[in-house]
Design a protein around this nucleic acid. Structure first.
Length: 402
RNA sequence: GGUGGGGUGUCCGAGUGGCUAAAGGAGGCAGACUGUAAAUCUGUUGGCUGACGCCUACGUAGGUUCAAAUCCUACCCCCACCA
């Protein structure tokens, strides 16, 4: 494919490309470019937010370019107590290996991992001398590091920043030099780090990498960016039903963004979608269900998407029982005293982390056993084999007498 | 090194001796309603207990007191300014 065409495909939808001319020049060299993607070994659960740049990597791969994954194990082993509330956990070698493994498994759902290069940055940082690290630090200034939006805000807000954290951009930047990256891609939150990469590569006498960033996907809550720690995410390895249900919970006004970033809708297609919703030809719920089905199918298959939708309608629109549900075992011993306490049953099924919580659920009228609502906290129940225990709208279990 | 401010529940944040499992908000969960696990409204939100009640919790460790998140001592950590 001619370079100009490639450029068009690769940059479509990008927020920033620094610099497009450089990218075109690289494409004209008619060789596989080295595309860097940094992976965080402390968060191995990938979600739809990650899928945005990953899908772009796929395009690079399809065009014959070389993907290079960097697992940032070097910094991961140090840990860091600064920042907000969460201290970065110190990861052991085994943990990092295990995380990298699940990471690869998930990434494999989007692109061909067997054709990608994978590096741990401890490969070059491990043997590095303190003097070399100081030399790296000498290439950058405090003022420039503190330009980063996140640091800037923390200084204003009086939130601590550790020396180590100020080193992270340099470490990441050095990774680019170590693997001689041609292009680095990621979310817009990485813009600063990527740009430092360009400076550091120049300092080491290399041609600077091209930087490409894509919008951060907004999470299920409709305001914050999708992230695991905020719990507003859809994991790419989640089962179809979970995926579909979570997607149905996004606020309506998130639909255009999801179509654009996850289904690669063009601006015209998005406009068309919005118009048909506004005019009433397409019901918002229908639009969302189609979106959810399409995305579920993307990570599983068309049949799974279809089934997830049917199941969702069955349980939430028609109020019927799900076709499959986990079991909760009840022994004869449990019922020895003439029945078991409802609170114990709810806890047994794993629907409440404590008895107090189970009690609360019963009091709030959330618990149904065998089709009958149980509201008495002290109720003794005698669940029959096959009875369905329901807690809230979406948690079901079938009693198994053993 | 000096001076001043601060560390509270999942998070943010009020509280300066008892009425404090700790205001308020966010988040979570539940109920009603619905277009759905949307929006809105309402309730609820440490653990154990059938219940009276008990236990744990306000940076850490001690102390004063009938009684401490609140007072005292030491220590750890954070922020600002000065050097």
């Amino acid at each position: 494919m001619v370079p100009e065409e490639q450029l068009h495909i690769l940059t479509q939808g990008a927020v920033d490309v620094v610099d497009e001319k450089e990218l075109l020049a690289k494409l004209r060299q008619d060789r596989p470019l080295r595309i860097k993607y940094g992976a965080d070994p402390s968060a191995p659960d990938l979600h739809l937010g990650h899928s945005v740049p990953l899908r772009r990597l796929r395009k690079f791969q399809d065009l014959g370019h070389q993907i290079v994954f960097i697992i940032g194990d070097f910094t991961g082993r140090i840990g860091d107590p600064s920042g907000r509330s969460k201290t970065r956990p110190i990861l052991s070698e085994e943990q990092i290996k295990a995380n990298a493994q699940t990471y690869a498994e998930q990434v494999g759902r989007i692109l061909d991992v067997s054709r990608a290069e994978i590096h741990y940055n401890s490969e070059w940082f491990g043997p590095m001398l303190a003097s070399d690290l100081l030399a790296l630090a000498s290439h950058y200034t405090i003022a420039r590091i503190l330009e980063r939006d996140d640091f800037h805000r923390r200084i204003i807000g009086g939130i601590p920043i550790s020396m180590l954290e100020t080193m992270y951009p340099l470490v990441q930047a050095y990774d680019s030099a170590a693997i001689r990256a041609d292009v680095e891609i990621g979310g817009t939150d990485q813009t600063f780090n990527f740009l430092v990469g360009r400076d550091i590569m120049r300092a080491y006498g290399q041609e600077p990498q091209v930087v490409m960033t894509w919008p951060l996907l907004v999470g299920l809550d409709g305001t914050e960016k999708m992230s695991k720690s905020l719990g507003n995410y859809v994991g790419i390895a989640e089962p179809p039903g979970e995926m579909f249900g979570k997607l149905m919970s996004i606020p309506d006004d998130l639909m255009p963004q999801y179509h654009r970033l996850l289904l690669h809708y063009s601006d015209e297609q998005v406009a068309e979608l919005e118009a048909s919703i506004a005019s009433g030809t397409l019901h918002p719920r229908e639009a969302k269900a189609r979106l959810a089905e399409a995305l579920t199918a993307q990570y599983h298959d068309a049949a799974a998407g279809c089934k997830a939708r049917a199941e969702f309608d069955r349980v939430f629109s028609e109020g019927l029982l799900p076709s499959e549900m986990p079991g909760v075992a009840v022994t004869a011993e449990d019922l020895a005293a003439g029945g078991m306490r409802i609170v114990a049953l709810v806890a047994r099924a794993g629907f409440a982390p404590s008895n107090s919580e189970a009690r609360r659920l019963v009091q709030q009228g959330a618990v149904t056993l065998g089709g009958t609502s149980v509201r008495d906290v002290n109720a003794q129940v005698t669940p029959q084999d096959g009875d369905v225990l329901q807690v809230g709208k979406r948690r079901f279990a079938r009693v198994r007498r053993v």
